Simulated scan of single mutants.
Amino acid sequence: MGLMLGMVYSVSAQVNFGPRVAVISSNLNVKEGVASVKEGDAEFGYQFGAFLRVKVPVIGLYIQPEALLSQTNSTITSGTSNVDLSFNRVDVPVMIGGKIGPLRINAGPAFSFLTKAESDVSGAVVDIKDNYSNTTVGFQAGLGVDVLKFVIDLKYEGALSEKFGETITAGGNSFQTDERSSQIVLAVGFKLF
């Protein structure tokens, strides 16, 4: 009986699961050289969902998939008009990492599934989801630390695959953007077990 309890404890000590929230700082990139179109400053978005961390004791690494609902915004100035863009996605990063002292170092692919994309020019909201790919692949890399039951990570995310918008028109200009902008992610999770 003691051996079975020891085995159950050993397995549970190798798996962590819990909720996760994040603040994102992102900037949408204009992909064409249109003279009167300017990219806006980085804007904040958010993510929330869950993470699962599985430790692989033989090699000293862990695998941490996450499932997150994300919302990001960007503003682009075209002529005298501001174009407000918003994107809702389901993001699934799969981080592989290890520990060096108290720090965790991790990196891995990040899969993104677009659920909603809209542009707002002077109060006219237009669905632009068809201008973008439904799925894209990016990468994340960063550092983290575990404090008590809290999981804290600072990561950079970039694009590996891109799909440009066919056309977004505002202020008399048509331009293309990259929906998967580079972003900084500050995330906090809580280990339920």
Score class of each variant (00 low, 15 high):
Tyr62Thr: 02
Glu66Cys: 06
Pro57Ile: 05
Thr75Gly: 08
Ser78Met: 03
Pro65Gly: 07
Ser74Arg: 01
Ile76Phe: 05
Asn82Met: 05
Val83Pro: 02
Met95Asn: 13
Asp91Thr: 12
Asp91Pro: 07
Val94Ser: 07
Leu68Pro: 00
Lys55Ser: 15
Thr72Met: 08
Ile76Arg: 00
Ser81Glu: 14
Arg53Asp: 09
Ser86Ala: 12
Gly60Lys: 06
Val54Tyr: 14
Asn82Lys: 01
Pro65Met: 08
Ile59Arg: 08
Val58Asn: 12
Tyr62Glu: 09
Val58Thr: 14
Leu85Gly: 00
Glu66His: 04
Gly60Asn: 09
Thr80Asp: 09
Val94Asn: 05
Val90Ala: 15
Gly79Lys: 00
Asp91His: 03
Ile96Gln: 04
Ser81Phe: 09
Met95Trp: 06
Asn88Thr: 15
Ser74Gln: 04
Leu68Met: 12
Val54Pro: 07
Ile63Tyr: 04
Ile63Phe: 06
Thr72Lys: 08
Ser81Gly: 09
Ile59Thr: 12
Lys99Ile: 11
Thr80Met: 07
Gly98Leu: 04
Val56Ile: 14
Ser70Met: 10
Leu68Arg: 00
Gly98Met: 10
Leu68Gly: 02
Ser78Tyr: 01
Gly60Glu: 13
Val92Ile: 15
Val54Phe: 11
Ile96Gly: 08
Ser81Pro: 09
Ile76Gln: 00
Asp91Met: 11
Gly60Met: 10
Tyr62Arg: 02
Asp84Ser: 14
Ser78Phe: 01
Leu85Glu: 03
Ala67His: 11
Gln64Trp: 01
Val56Ala: 11
Arg89Val: 10
Glu66Tyr: 02
Leu68Tyr: 00
Phe87Leu: 04
Asn88Gln: 15
Gly97Pro: 02
Asn73Cys: 06
Pro57Leu: 05
Leu69Gly: 07
Ser74Tyr: 02
Thr80Gln: 07
Arg89Glu: 15
Val90Pro: 03
Gly97Arg: 03
Met95Tyr: 06
Gln64Val: 06
Phe87Glu: 02
